[in-house]
Design a protein around this nucleic acid. Structure first.
Lengths: 342, 342
DNA sequence: CTGAAAGCGCTTACAG
DNA sequence: CTGAAAGCGCTTACAG
């Protein structure tokens, strides 16, 4: 870059002190005449002057940067989350530092540590779907560093502002919905053991069964890993050994795999087997048949996490330390009514 | 946050000057005994001391932040681009500031202006698929601000480091491939008028036809907007008025729309009509039939743009100001051989 | 309404 | 091998 214009240059140009320029730039009202103000503003514009963020930051202890730590940028939910946060925070003058952990707890810890040491003013950190380690988050929060977690579990986080998804309710709702359409044999493909939300979705499935009075049958449950292939394989296995008219997968990707397996076995979705996914991704919408799924409202979650983080930074109280988003069941073309319940 | 530990605290703790601490932290060798070094390093670790980035930045004029300006975070190509850049730059100690323009030229200009004023050390800016305005980029580059463009066109950018995709070659390759499989009536769905790469892909289609000796027939070309629906509608129109055995869509999303339209018209892909997309997205891979597509190597492009940007920042020469990536045609299940060419 | 001066927490010539 | 001091470009009490 060429020689930078500094506040001193502007001050000299306008024959005022740098104090005055600084005040005008920071919208401190009532300190000077409108003339002076206009003169300075003109000079600033003419010189295309922008205050040096580092210098400003050194004094104010604010960077106007927010860190967003995610495990997977290829995942639609996290893209929505990011976008919701960005849309809110950009308005407030923040830029976002996006950090991709790839589900690696060590890398997550590094990001948390480095970002919190003066790089950003606050952090939004989401779940990893693998092994989470909440100790660093806890430490930061105890040091009053503004941080908010999204879809992250653990008793130790109870005092930390967080935003969650009602995973149990959602899957229970899916079971209810299938039950009402006459389904009694409902299979379930769950996510990886290590993922907290996978556990919760499975619990929701069991809860739903219990509520409608269907006994839980372990043989109808298969383990997956949130990837397409695992959904395919699990469904294939299920088809070989079990009878069922509906299947719930703990995410959309596995649901697509399930649909494939069903079709490859010469059966139809939804004529022979109804399928419901989870996440409400574009994938579900673009599937053929359009996949029934659970919509998570990632965008709104991102927006709210940004709003709450912003409040924390500004020293305001947030309404609820813990906000649980209720997902929405979206019926697609992949669900068939066998028989209306009377 | 609690009271921050500063370099002064460490210096006092170790009974050395802050100069010495600074030098050790910055790996300036040969300035002190191994003992002193160890003593300081221990204190740093014990206090969990991290130098204040703003203070450091104020002196060094470096922020260790890189801006990445993209039009659409939901687009797989840009996700790959980002990831490639992040993987390289994280290694070098940088964090990435991700800015989403949503294709808005005004917002892009704002990001370019604000980021370049001391927020980041360099910028990777990609195409918008809508209206691009290269003037700000040009200005920054002229002021020696490290910037690199990806898949962005315009004669005025000729002296600016950039990374491109051989769009023409790719589509011409697609035509060749279909031709070799016996196809003679090949339809094309192009992208939006304003997108430079859409124009190039169309040119590639025409070029390919010319090369294999098929006359260009305007009636076989329909305008889309890179969205699924436009692919669906365009294909529906084509099916109603034209005879063709193959169709190329300028991106995967429109290709999926095309497949839908073909199937909804009671025809089969690839038995009746072969389809080739563009972008090599997961969508193509997850489609049924698996979509033949053009793989863009977004990850490698992101990595190289990061590498080159890094070199520019370090004042090194980059090998080529302009690098053109050759896409790869990936045959899926959506392409049928009508008749082998002799 | 305005400004001189201190200070934010570092790095880096410069001197020894 | 080590340190005192200047200076990076701002903001903000403090004084007028």
């Amino acid at each position: 870059m060429g020689k930078r214009v500094t506040i001193k240059d502007i001050a000299e140009e306008c024959h005022v002190s740098i104090t005055t320029v600084s005040r005008i730039l920071n919208n401190k009202k009532g300190y000077c005449t409108a003339e002076t103000e206009q003169k300075v503003l003109d000079a600033v514009k003419k010189a295309n002057y922008h205050p040096n963020p580092a210098a400003r930051s050194l004094v104010t202890k604010k960077t106007n940067l927010i860190g967003v730590i995610l495990p997977d940028i290829y995942n639609y939910f996290f893209q929505e989350l990011f976008q919701g946060a960005e849309d809110f925070l950009r308005e407030k003058g923040y830029s976002l530092v996006l950090c991709n952990t790839d589900g690696d707890a060590k890398r997550e810890r590094e990001f948390l540590n480095s970002l919190s040491q003066g790089v950003v003013d606050g952090i939004i950190v989401s779940t990893s779907n693998r092994e989470d380690d909440n100790s660093t988050i806890l430490e930061l929060a105890q040091n009053k560093f503004p941080i908010i977690t999204v879809e992250r579990y653990g008793e130790e986080l109870k005092d930390i502002p967080r935003i969650l998804v009602a995973n149990r309710e959602a899957e229970s709702m899916a079971v209810h919905s299938l039950y009402e359409r006459g389904h009694r044999r409902i299979a379930f493909i769950c996510g990886p053991v290590k993922a907290d939300n996978a556990k919760r979705r499975l619990e929701g499935y069991r809860l739903g069964l219990e509520e409608v009075g269907i006994p839980y049958d372990e043989a109808l449950v298969c383990r997956g890993d949130y990837k397409l292939d695992s959904g395919y394989r699990a469904t294939k296995e299920l088809l070989e050994s079990q009878e069922f008219t509906a299947l719930i997968a703990a995410n959309d990707l596995m649901a697509v795999g399930a649909v494939r397996a069903i079709q490859d076995a010469g059966k139809s979705v939804p004529d022979d087997i109804s399928v419901i996914g989870y996440d409400g991704t574009l994938l579900a919408e673009l599937s053929k048949p359009v996949l029934g799924t659970v919509i998570l409202h990632g965008y709104d979650m991102g927006k709210l996490s940004a709003e709450n983080l912003f409040k924390i930074i500004k020293g305001k109280k947030i309404a609820d330390k813990k906000v649980v988003f209720k997902p929405e069941l979206k019926l697609g073309e992949s669900i068939r009514t066998i028989q209306k319940e009377k």
